[in-house]
Computed example of a mutant assay.
Amino acid sequence: MRVRDVMSRPVVSVRRETPVSEAVSLLTTHGFAALPVVDDRERVIGIVSEADAMGALESRKGSSVVEVAMSTPVEVVEPTTEVSEVVKAALDHHRRSLPVVAAGVLVGMVSRSDLLRAFALNEGVIEARVYSLLDDYAGSHRGWDVEVADSTVTVRGACADEAERRVVTAMIRTIPGAGDVRVVDTARAGAGE
C-alpha cells in the first residue's frame, strides 16, 4: 500500500506570513497535528506543529507570523512511498504527520490516523468494496472474480473493450487500501489474446 492510498486531501496549509494566531485557529478547529508551510509555488518550506504553536504562544511570539514558529527542514514523503516506510519514519522520528509532495509540490498530508486506518483496511474489506463498486458500475448480472493479496487487487471478468478495462481499473484505484490493480479480461484471454 502506498501513501497515495491513505493520504488526506485537500490540504490546509499556511504561508510564512500567516499570523501564528491564525495557524493556531486552524490547528484547533480542524484537529490537525501540524500544518505545512508553503511558498507561492505550493512547495513545502516548513511545518508548524502544535508544539511549535504552543512554543510561540508561550514565548510571546504568538502575535508574530508562522515563519518565526515553523520548524525546518521538513521531512516529506511522496505519494508512491510505501506506507510501511512512513510508519517507520513516524515512529523513529516521533512525527504525527508528514507532508506529501509530488514533483516538489504539496499534494496531501499523511497522519498517524491515516496510517492506522490503512492497517485497519484488511483484504476482506477491500474485496467487499471492489465487489460493491463493480455491482454499482455494471450490475450484479456481470460475473467478476476479485482477489486481493497484499493490497494488490486482481479482477477477472469479461470487459466490453479496452476502454472498459481502463475504466474499471481507474474506479478500483479510488478505493482506500487498493494498491496495484490488475484487470484481466477473460473474454480476450480466452480468445488467445
Rank of each mutant, 00 (worst) to 15 (best):
D92Q: 13
T81F: 06
Y137K: 08
A89L: 15
N122A: 05
A90T: 06
T80V: 12
D135E: 14
M109R: 02
K88Q: 10
V77C: 02
E85F: 06
L115P: 08
L115K: 07
D136E: 15
E85M: 09
V87A: 09
E123P: 02
Y137I: 11
R95E: 11
L134T: 11
S113K: 15
D92S: 13
S140A: 14
T80F: 07
G104Q: 06
H93V: 02
S132H: 11
V74I: 12
I126W: 05
Y137Q: 08
R112W: 09
Y137N: 07
S113W: 12
V100W: 01
S111G: 11
V76S: 03
V125D: 10
A120H: 05
L115Q: 06
A102C: 03
S132Q: 13
V76Q: 05
V125F: 08
R117V: 12
N122R: 15
S97V: 08
E85P: 00
P99A: 11
E85V: 08
A118M: 10
P99L: 04
D114C: 08
R96D: 14
A138K: 15
H93T: 04
V130G: 02
E78V: 13
Y131M: 13
P79E: 03
V77Y: 02
T81M: 09
E75L: 15
G139F: 01
V107M: 00
V100Q: 01
A128W: 05
L91P: 07
L133A: 09
V130H: 05
G108W: 01
L106V: 09
